[in-house]
Structure formats: structure tokens, C-alpha cells
């Protein structure tokens, strides 16, 4: 397998190929990831989320440019939904807008969700690991809207940027529930139109009200930005750096990394064990086992416990 070696030497085509193998869950996927694993763990993972139309892509473009200017190597993962019916996807290439996408230090990859939400976050996490191994300093994950999958993905991130815009007036109300708890940095984008100031204050108030049950010493800043006018970009970059620094100095990063690694182990365990046991289920008990449960002669619990006893203990 020269591919992994080539990739580790900095070959972009090899990197791209490796990502495909991981994404396709090809047979040597685990082998590849195992080989890469020692090289991971040095990147800042930045999740960018927010409702569609909030201008995430333009913001990310500027972010990437600033990172590159500072000499960082940057990877971007953009996630789009696949069609449930055909499996096809249009990966609208939102983030290839600037000249910067041709910079040798930038690598951009689009991914379709290809099935379940769980699937997407797992594959995204694995591809992030690949990019880490490739030596990207900053890895940005962009998702299309603020759904469950977005929140799931942000669990992988060290720094979560929530992008909102005053254009859709009820954003804050709508997002109060989920998104207001996950942000490390808030951006009020398109600040050149309308009620930006008001929105900033509103978000600050919300953060303050939640801060009582947050033990971290980090208070999420709220930044006014206009990707169009290139305003607020510097400040955003500064805050992203500051947050990274904070994570390292406070030791918070160790907790996050520990959580990530644990998650990886637990996820892998869950998946493999359940696949394993599922494969045994029918061969062991036959298809009738479901009838037995239907007739209430067995319960799901008794069946699973029998399986575990037989194959795992």
C-alpha cells in the first residue's frame, strides 16, 4: 500500500484517493486509518454551523484566506445531503470561490451524506482524521444547515462557530434551543443590513443566561461581520486563535481529545459488536426468533442477553 506513504509525504492525489477509500468504507479502510492514526491529533478542528443563507461559505472563504496568509495548512470539508431515493447528490461547490482554493496549502473536499445521519458523522470524523494525518493545521467542517447532523458534527470540533444573520429576524428565537449551547464563537453575519446591533445584544444576553451552567472559563464572543465588506474577518480569526490557545492553556484540549478518542472507541465498538451479533442472530436462532418475540414468548432483552452470553462471555 504505497498510497498511505505517498500521502504522508504530502502527495495531494494520494490524500484524495485515501479519502475516497475511507468514504467508500473500502475493505482496507480500517487498516489505512490505523496507519494514519499515529500522525493525528495536532490540528484544530473548527466546525462552522448556522442556518442556510447565513453566509457561512463566504465567511469560510475569508477565514481560509486569512489562515493561509498566516502560513497555516488548511483543510475544508463541506457536507451536502444525498438524495434518499437515488443516492445521488449535488455537491454545490460553495467554498471554491476564491483564488485561495488553488493555494498549495489548501485542500477542499465535498462529501455527500450517503444515507444515515449517523453514517455521515462517522465518515466525516474519519476523513477529519485523514486530514489531520496529512498535516493540516486547521480543519474546517462546513455543513449545510442547522440540523441534528450539524450538532453531531460539532461534537468532533474543538471550536464551534455559529453563524447567524439579522436577515432572518426570528433566528435567535428559533435557535435558542439547540444551537445557543454549542457555540464557542458567534458571528452575526451580513451586519451591513438591518438590526445587527440588536441581534448582538440579544445573543450576548442569551449567552450570559446560559453561562451559569457552563463551567468553562471561556465566554463566547459575539462578532459582527460582513463577509461582503470583509469586516470582522480579522477579529474572527483572532478569536479562533484565542480559543485554540485557551483550550491548550486551560488544559481543556486534553478533555476534548480524551472525549474524542473515547467516542471513537465507543462508536467503533458499538458498530462492530452490533454488526457481529446481528450476523449471529439469525444463524443462531433462525428467523423464527422474531415470531417468538411477537408471540411474547421471548422479549428483545432475553434474546440479546442470550446472544451476549453465548458469543461474548
Amino acid at each position: 500500500m504505497g498510497l498511505v506513504e505517498d500521502m504522508l509525504k504530502g502527495d495531494k492525489r494520494a490524500l484524495s484517493r485515501v479519502i475516497t477509500l475511507v468514504e467508500n468504507n473500502s475493505q482496507n479502510c480500517e487498516e489505512i486509518l490505523s496507519k494514519l492514526y499515529p500522525h493525528t491529533g495536532n490540528s484544530q478542528i473548527i466546525g462552522v454551523t448556522g442556518p442556510p443563507g447565513s453566509g457561512k461559505s463566504t465567511l469560510i472563504n475569508h477565514l481560509v484566506r486569512e489562515f493561509v496568509r498566516k502560513g497555516y495548512k488548511v483543510g475544508v470539508l463541506a457536507i451536502d445531503p444525498s438524495s434518499e431515493f437515488t443516492g445521488g447528490a449535488l455537491l454545490g461547490d460553495r467554498i471554491r470561490m476564491l483564488e485561495v482554493s488553488l493555494d498549495s496549502n489548501v485542500f477542499i473536499r465535498s462529501m455527500g451524506t450517503r444515507g444515515t445521519l449517523g453514517g455521515i458523522s462517522r465518515k466525516t470524523k474519519e476523513v477529519v482524521r485523514v486530514l489531520e494525518a496529512f498535516g493540516k493545521d486547521k480543519i474546517i467542517i462546513e455543513t449545510i444547515g442547522a440540523g441534528q447532523s450539524d450538532i453531531e458534527i460539532t461534537r468532533t470540533a474543538h471550536t464551534v462557530i455559529v453563524v447567524l444573520t439579522p436577515e432572518t429576524g426570528d433566528d435567535v428565537q428559533v435557535l435558542k434551543a439547540g444551537i445557543m449551547e454549542i457555540g464557542d464563537i458567534y458571528v452575526v453575519n451580513k451586519a451591513d443590513i438591518g438590526n445587527a446591533e440588536f441581534m448582538v445584544e440579544e445573543i450576548k444576553a442569551l449567552i450570559a443566561s446560559k453561562s451559569s451552567n457552563v463551567s468553562k472559563e471561556w465566554t463566547a464572543p459575539v462578532i459582527k461581520a460582513s463577509a461582503k465588506k470583509k469586516e470582522g474577518i480579522r477579529e474572527l480569526v483572532e478569536q479562533v486563535e484565542k480559543h485554540w490557545n485557551y483550550l491548550k492553556v486551560s488544559g481543556e484540549i486534553n478533555k476534548l481529545e480524551e472525549r474524542r478518542v473515547k467516542n471513537e472507541v465507543v462508536d467503533t465498538l458499538n458498530r462492530k459488536i452490533s454488526n457481529y451479533l446481528l450476523s449471529k442472530l439469525e444463524s443462531e436462532f433462525g428467523k423464527e426468533i422474531f415470531d417468538e418475540i411477537l408471540k411474547r414468548k421471548e422479549s428483545p432483552y432475553s434474546v440479546v442477553n442470550r446472544l451476549i452470553k453465548k458469543f461474548l462471555c
Binding site: 445521488g88 455537491l91 454545490g92 461547490d93 465535498s110
Partner: peptide
């Protein structure tokens, strides 16, 4: 192409 199940990256 999408409707036939492919993944399409459209650069515009």
C-alpha cells in the same frame, strides 16, 4: 446525473 445516483460537483 444526480437523479441517476451519481455525486456531482458543479463548479459553475
Amino acid at each position: 446525473l444526480r437523479d441517476s445516483g451519481m455525486e456531482v460537483i458543479y463548479l459553475g
